[in-house]
Nucleic acid binder design. Structure first.
Lengths: 356, 356
DNA sequence: CTGAAAGCGCTTACAG
DNA sequence: CTGAAAGCGCTTACAG
């Protein structure tokens, strides 16, 4: 049965069963070269005669040969897997990002391994470290908020694991970063509300521990200040990026007297909570209350009236993250142009002139 | 530098750098057995003296040894990866399912590799086949609607790849299936509407090619029939499981005369579209129009009024799928009790007595 | 119950 | 520009 190394086609192949996959040995034998030479072609080594390269390549094509990632990985001491590490309350964001990453990875030979974790768990860092080491990951894409964890990034560096941090501001070098411009976008949102004549404004912040909380707040407050508006402390409440927390936060804000005429929620889920609270109080949007969200997730257009919100190109950013890692895989320099993605306001129908 | 096989701790280890991971050879040497014996312990072979097993196990623990999945995989001729293959318009469903799977896989040593595909693409099947072969996947979890593709399943069987089909009805044997009871749930929804006195009812179906389309329709129609209600053909329109298609379908249904007093949409996204269309026509929900959805995704509670819908335990089903594969990995018999999960109606505020 | 040899499909390190 | 040998960290097939 071990005719595998002596004849071009085993009988199983001939019968179309083809139990055994083509290996580097098959290609080497057929090309009349050593397997080391095939390996050189595979790895784009410059030390191969053009003629040899062509012959090997066409043979690989003909036989439908793809190198075994496990065998390669074992020899390389690293795998062809890329991890996506996340602990994020925003499900929609996670899928969209994931789809973008898959998009960018398509046809690269790298596969995406997803890894959910609990950033508050006692073994958070050791578990991620174990994951990275066990699978010998080539690289990791880290979603917020754990992308902001410097100890995590340090741990990845120590292990020689490439990484890309998804973030809401520039917190690393290009090549290790894909960021949106949250503070610019919320400044734009602030300007929008100011232009509509709002001065009594409520702000629902994201949860502590998220850089996006800070970025969105900073941009919004600075934007207001440019228009001469200062937000009193009582007009700012914390949320948790969840629907329920949005309801609770809005209830607090809408109890204020004088009542705010506009509320900015730091994400769409919380903005949906604002809608709920407003409705309970009989307030109409945008007649009595203007609302702005952040994320432009599907829910923003399902709400009534459709939500004015900030859009950031999640899918494209996911793809960019994949591309950064693929550049690293082929020893190309980081692509600085592919690191920062503008977020911007999308005006819909939840904002209107401030009531007199 | 090749002191690795002669001393217990290399100097790097002693300095806490520990560049080299512990391998099966280290454990064998320390335990004073052959690596084959360590391998036996690793694979739960019964042919190991209890004493030996204990010594090896405690040594593995002490050294923090985990076998290298790539090396094991190469020798086993299969990997410790599980694929999740999907092409589904419902992002929320995909994440929730994925989280359930990750939950079930936690601590198993198996990792989840996600693979989006295009079921209408020219190379759909060959691409999935290539994915499965290249990665030598242990198993695959297939999401609807491609879980209903028998050619795909055949292809997996041929390659000896374990699989679990996620479905809306019993379409395979337990162990290869995790299904919800969609038709029972929509029968329940039909009864609910009938009990409220609705007789002029609109039905928005899912897109052709989805088994869930058939199950949900069948259950709903049978449920109505039990209450003596027959749906004329013009009261049934097709949707695509998307928001936009829900709007379009509802516009058709609400043009009917007499106008339906209730609409069942085969998923929540389309139900959200019904809300939109109703609002454009100045119809109030549930006063003028009752609406029922399916999925109980977050959007159903963000809508106003909160949507009466069908809930199915997506997360639990994802976990069950993982558990089926893990049973297969340890040669346990399929767990028939863990295959069918009831879906059921969740009454909220979008349904009320039919207007007189 | 245990082990020595060979092999999984690649790459590294070395030599030419 | 090319190749033979050894090795990555495991398991299979065989022997005892």
């Amino acid at each position: 049965m071990s005719s595998s190394s002596s004849s071009r086609k085993t009988s199983a192949d001939a019968r179309g069963e083809s139990k055994r996959r083509t290996t580097i040995n098959d290609i080497a034998r057929l090309a009349g070269v050593s397997k080391k030479t095939v390996s050189r072609v595979l790895n784009n080594s410059p030390f191969v005669r053009e003629e040899t390269r062509l012959k090997v390549n066409s043979l690989m094509q003909e036989m439908g040969y793809t190198p075994d990632p496990q065998a390669r990985g074992l020899a390389f001491r690293r795998s062809f897997l890329i991890g996506m590490v996340f602990d994020n309350p925003n499900a929609q964001m996670v899928v969209t990002m994931q789809e973008g990453v898959l998009d960018g990875l398509k046809g690269s030979g790298f596969e995406l391994v997803v890894h959910a974790c609990d950033r508050n768990g006692p073994n958070f860092l050791p578990e991620v470290a174990a994951f990275v080491e066990r699978q010998k990951l080539f690289g990791v894409i880290v979603l917020p908020p754990i992308s902001e964890n410097n100890a995590l990034v340090e741990l990845l560096k120590e292990r020689g694991c490439h990484y890309v941090r998804m973030a809401s501001a520039v917190i690393d070098e290009p090549g290790n970063l894909v960021a949106s411009t949250d503070s610019l976008a919320t400044a734009e949102a602030a300007k929008h509300l100011a232009d509509l004549g709002h001065t009594r404004i409520g702000f629902i912040a994201g949860p502590p521990g998220f850089r996006s909380r800070e970025e969105r707040r900073k941009g919004f407050l600075e934007g207001l200040k440019k228009h001469g508006i200062d937000l009193p402390a009582k007009n700012m409440v914390d949320g948790a990026y969840t629907y329920e927390s949005g309801i609770a936060a809005a209830e607090k804000l809408l109890k204020l007297s004088p009542r705010p005429t506009a509320i900015f929620a730091s994400n769409d889920e919380m903005a949906a909570g604002v809608y709920h609270a407003a409705r309970q109080l009989g307030l109409s949007i945008p007649g009595d209350l203007s609302v702005v969200g952040f994320d432009d997730t599907p829910v923003s257009s399902r709400l009534w009236p459709p939500l004015t919100t900030v859009r950031w190109p999640i899918h494209d950013m996911g793809r960019a993250a994949a591309q950064h890692l693929l550049r690293a895989a082929t020893d190309q320099a980081p692509d600085a142009d592919n690191a920062v993605f503008p977020a911007f306001l999308v005006e819909r129908e939840s904002t209107a002139a401030a009531p007199k």
